[in-house]
């Protein structure tokens, strides 16, 4: 399978505020998305998953490493970025905030094509995108404004806006977090349908492990700027190896096992612990201390999608 989107040894460091250390939001990540594949990137807030998503679409310039789209390393000139965005599109969370309240649905979806000079048969392009996003018949929706639509319909407009440029990959940051429970499934179904009908690839960023189970082929679990475990959804969610993944799964209401509540403060990217970055909160290490946990740094996971599941932990290798 062809790789359509890749990051190699990516780091994004935000400069220090006064008196504080720089924040290592993304601290060495390898990740690949292959054609027609849906990859879920999961983690808690502050783990760097949104920064990684923004770096993937060129909105954040990495401090180190590379973003590779369709085999070409991403350049950061205006022209290079513009060309890249026909290939990779971002779908934001909270469609209510992502849409301009004074812009009609037609104009919102046409914005991308207009910026790219694709004004030939613009109407047809916009209507096709609306129909693909499930707003049928498109003529009925094109003239509406965001406030005349439900949250689910607004998210479909945002997705139609991404589809209008016929990208190969969409990067969706919490695409259903702000939607109601019953609408959530409809939007997830749409992402699956787009993959099946258009061969679209997707990287879906979420805090919700159930979302990965619902739509993803592979999953990467992120903690404090690094991917700590990756593999197929079945491997990672049914047979988790990393103690962090195991803890995350154990606190779900239907997990059927005693919850492992992690103690201690949420991780802070301005002071990443040495050795394994999870060691201060790790229940495995608490049970059987090992000098490697706080003494020996772990290598960055290769992110090779054809390899079997990988976990960044001294104790479970």
């Amino acid at each position: 399978m062809k790789t359509v989107l890749e990051v190699r040894d990516l780091t994004v460091t935000y400069p220090a505020r006064r008196g504080a250390a720089p924040a290592r939001a993304v601290d060495g990540v390898n990740l690949q998305v292959r054609q027609g594949e849906i990859v879920a990137l999961v983690g808690e807030s502050g783990c760097g998953k949104s920064t990684l998503a923004r770096a993937l679409v060129g909105l954040v310039r990495p401090t180190g490493g590379q973003v590779v789209g369709d085999g070409e390393p991403l350049g950061y000139s205006a022209a290079a970025l513009k060309a890249y965005r026909r290939h990779t599109q971002l779908v934001l969370q909270d469609p209510g905030g992502a849409l301009n309240p004074r812009q009609s649905v037609f104009d919102a979806v046409a914005e991308g094509p207009r910026l790219h000079g694709l004004t030939d048969r613009l109407g047809e392009r916009v209507h096709t995108a609306l129909a693909k996003a499930g707003l049928r018949p498109p003529e009925q929706f094109a003239g509406r404004f965001p406030h005349e639509m439900s949250g689910g319909q607004q998210q479909r407009v945002v997705i139609a806006g991404a589809l209008a440029l016929e990208p190969k990959v969409i990067v969706a940051d919490e695409p259903v977090a702000s939607l109601d429970a019953s609408v959530r499934g409809e939007i997830l179904k749409l992402i699956l349908e787009l993959r099946d009908s258009l061969g679209l690839s997707a990287l879906v960023v979420s805090h919700d492990l159930g979302l990965a189970w619902n739509i993803a082929d592979r999953v990467a679990v992120m903690y404090l700027g690094r991917i700590v475990e990756t593999g197929t959804v079945e491997e990672v969610l049914l047979r988790p190896r990393h103690p962090y993944t195991r803890a995350l799964l154990s606190v779900l209401p239907d997990s059927g096992e005693p919850p492992v509540l992690l103690t201690g403060e949420p991780p802070d990217p301005t002071s990443v612990p040495g050795g394994c970055r999870f060691h201060p909160r790790c229940p495995l290490r608490a049970a059987e201390p090992d000098p490697r946990c706080d003494g020996l740094d772990l290598p960055v996971l290769t992110g090779d999608p054809s390899a079997s599941a990988l976990a960044a932990c001294h104790l479970v290798q």
């Binding site: 019953s182 959530r184 699956l192």
Partner: peptide, 18 residues
């Protein structure tokens, strides 16, 4: 059904909506 149980084969690659 909107929030799947991980491990339930019925919801794997089959999100349920309304």
């Amino acid at each position: 059904r909107a929030f799947p149980t991980i491990g339930d084969p019925a919801s794997r690659l089959a999100p349920a909506g309304l």
